[in-house]
Design a protein around this nucleic acid. Structure first.
Lengths: 193, 193
DNA sequence: GCTTGTCCTGACACTCAGTGCCAAAATCCC
DNA sequence: GGGATTTTGGCACTGAGTGTCAGGACAAGC
């Protein structure tokens, strides 16, 4: 690693640390890019060379890395998982891989704390969170008290996943009734539920 | 409905129609709010009274409506679904309700078309779409050609749902190993997969 | 029909995010 | 050390979104 690269990493880390600290203290929206660059001692223009946007500071390491991590985990080439595994096993292994990678980064916890504290910061991860929250709450109410929060959250996630897939299927042929797409998706869920 | 309310609805519809038309022709980013208000014949300030942001035009009807729709569908009070239904039945019914509601609005198709055509417009729905896309592609590759796209998309959705739930569980007690959270979530998935 | 209070609209000015451009400084390679 | 290349800072610009305020349109009462 050359001097230049180490220096860049240093600057990048310095910006990130300062920014996360400010977010935690003042909130995401209340912290301006000017606040960050002043505290970090870099120019405004340089900030945008290291991070493509303010939300990049929250979504960690810019665009594409999470996608790559997920893809890698599913394909699991590094682990040499048996070709004959069932999809359930693949799914479980992939979740474990990604969760492990994310949890291994100490920054993850700080980001989760900020996201828990400030709603605006949660928006950095997209509006999907709000819908998921609402659906999970509804499932919880529907189930009564006997079942726990985890299952409600999972059901909500599966529902949103099913909906997304339904729209995908339906959009290929929007003239047909959408219930046909629902049928097809639930045929795919067959055996899971 | 008073004259005032009808007038507001008229303005709102006019803005939306003009905006969607511009998005479809020029793209989401390339269309400025100034373009929209000029074409619609309202002031810039009034635009932001009707829509809280430019992306609101894509996510349809502002914040909260989709959440409400999902919640309503799960609780299913309007349908009077039997209390004793299994969660699988509830899930299916809720998906059908939401999909039906969405498909019934003619605007939905236009929005889907724009989202399909312009990547920037997809970003209005949050970054989650990109991750889902990547994961579904990975599952497709992993499964080989024998299974179809629908199942890959579903698997991707379930995986993201599981991950989100894992982080939720883990965040309550971040000192413990994240694999414990994964265990717990997959215990909830037990019987589904 | 006219007044009065309420709501809506347009206009202006402002903050902040993000980008293009160019000159100066730092780094790397020889 | 000297020259090519990369990085940086400064400046100006566009575009989104917000606060404020005066003026106009609406509903209700007389």
């Amino acid at each position: 690693m050359s001097l230049r690269e180490r220096k860049q990493q240093l600057v990048r880390d310095a910006i990130w640390d300062v920014a996360i600290d400010l977010f935690a203290r003042k909130g995401f929206d209340a912290t301006t890019v000017d606040d960050i660059v002043e505290a970090a001692g870099v120019s405004r223009r340089s900030f945008f060379r290291y991070f493509s946007s303010k939300t990049d500071l929250m979504t960690q390491s810019g665009s594409g890395r999470y996608e790559a991590m997920v893809t890698e985990a599913i394909l699991g080439s590094a682990r040499g998982r048996a070709k004959g595994s069932t999809m359930g096993e693949v799914l479980r292994g992939a979740v474990l891989d990604v969760a492990g990678c994310v949890a291994a980064e100490p920054r993850t916890l700080k980001i989760l704390e900020i996201a828990a504290k400030y709603p605006e910061a949660r928006a950095a991860f997209g509006r999907a969170g709000d819908v998921h929250e609402a659906a999970a709450g509804a499932f919880r109410r529907r189930m009564g008290k006997k079942k726990d929060r985890v299952e409600a959250s999972l059901l909500a996630g599966v529902m949103l996943a099913a909906l997304r897939t339904v729209f995908e299927v339906w959009f290929e042929n929007p003239r047909q009734d959408i219930s046909v797409a629902v049928e097809r998706v639930f045929a795919g869920l067959e055996g899971w539920i």
